[in-house]
Design a protein around this nucleic acid. Sequence first.
DNA 1: CTTGACTTGGAACGTACGTTCGGTATACAA
DNA 2: TTGTATACCGAACGTACGTTCCAAGTCAAG
Lengths: 217, 217
Amino acid sequence: MAKGKLSERQSEMIEFIGRFTQDKGYPPTIRQIGEAVSISSTSVVNYNLNKLERDGYIVRDLKVSRGVRLASGVGRRLPRSAEGRLSIPLAGFIFASEPVLVGDTAQTSGDEVIELTRDLISDEGDLFALRVKGNSMIDAMVSDGDIVVMKKVDRARNGEMVAVWLNDRGETTLKHFYLENGRVRLQPANPTMQPIFVDPSKVVVQGKVMLVLRQLN
Amino acid sequence: MAKGKLSERQSEMIEFIGRFTQDKGYPPTIRQIGEAVSISSTSVVNYNLNKLERDGYIVRDLKVSRGVRLASGVGRRLPRSAEGRLSIPLAGFIFASEPVLVGDTAQTSGDEVIELTRDLISDEGDLFALRVKGNSMIDAMVSDGDIVVMKKVDRARNGEMVAVWLNDRGETTLKHFYLENGRVRLQPANPTMQPIFVDPSKVVVQGKVMLVLRQLN
DNA sequence: CTTGACTTGGAACGTACGTTCGGTATACAA
DNA sequence: TTGTATACCGAACGTACGTTCCAAGTCAAG
């Protein structure tokens, strides 16, 4: 996709196609589009539609009347909205003083579940959510009551934000993880705070933080 | 609507229309319907479509190609899946150095949209989302790249987290808002930081923070 | 047997609609 | 100047597609 920036008219067209399809139930014709954006000639509409298709904004079915629709990811659209939601078990709480319990993340039976749309998070792997209790995670920019969505992993790549259990301190913390020349650097998300360095044998990675969610009243 | 019971062919037609529309993005033509349900003559399809419309199963727009769609409440349809989710325009960025632009929250044309499930946020009021740029909101426990979902309000109740424009400082900030004996106390979310006190005439409330979202990758 | 409601088929009609082509105007580089 | 690329217009062409009309088959009521 050449991804040229779209002109005034072109974004108008996209917007119109979306709106029209939304409330009529079928896409507009070329002539209707033309009328909507003040283009007198159908060939010009066609011209611009081809460009929009090249750039990946719309999909066209040639030779088909009203054979135009917004591409996935463009505007709010109907078909995609059916898929794309994800239920994640809200497994419990996270305290600084306890290791994260990573049990069978599947069965949380009638428990609380948090629903997210798939464009907020990729759904690969074992996802679970925890509610943060207390202010011990402040240096990770996470406060009391926040929900963290984590993926169950046991090793972290550099730079990832992970939940780690620190053996010798006896606490769980959320930090950016870096393995550098034989030691682990745990970097707080808050750039005003200092990193801590620990021996790799002393840290247990319990999950990778995928998303943090804070609801204010 | 005479609500006659629908024949084998008619329910086939309804089913086909739904499926076709779903994955092509536009409704089928009369001839396509005919082919799908083994009707050789377009007039017969038309005949049955008219009946289906009389009985309230479908809606037709006469004289327009592909002008047929399932009526609300028929089949698995898009609106149902649209319930419980909410599209919020991602209006732009928030900088410490600029007031939040609260313009026409409606037109964001082909722009980005963030989709949330309704149990994460109530949908009353004008909602819009902003991406936080820079680390100036650290004392609100909000970091670079976070998305804040806000409701457009111009007055705040005590304790609410709001985006306020500070006249004399020339900056926007996210703080808990308290009006106490004639002055405004703006309390950082981070409890280790000190509140600031300002004159009510010097603050402009621009929105109430409903939700903070941080995606880590 | 008719008679009349349904349901199906075939064919023709008219136009809605996507496509193509020739032409114009502007801007920019060789 | 002469390109070449972008953006637009108008007109014409061909067919996709909704509609209408005529005919014929079924089936139950009379």
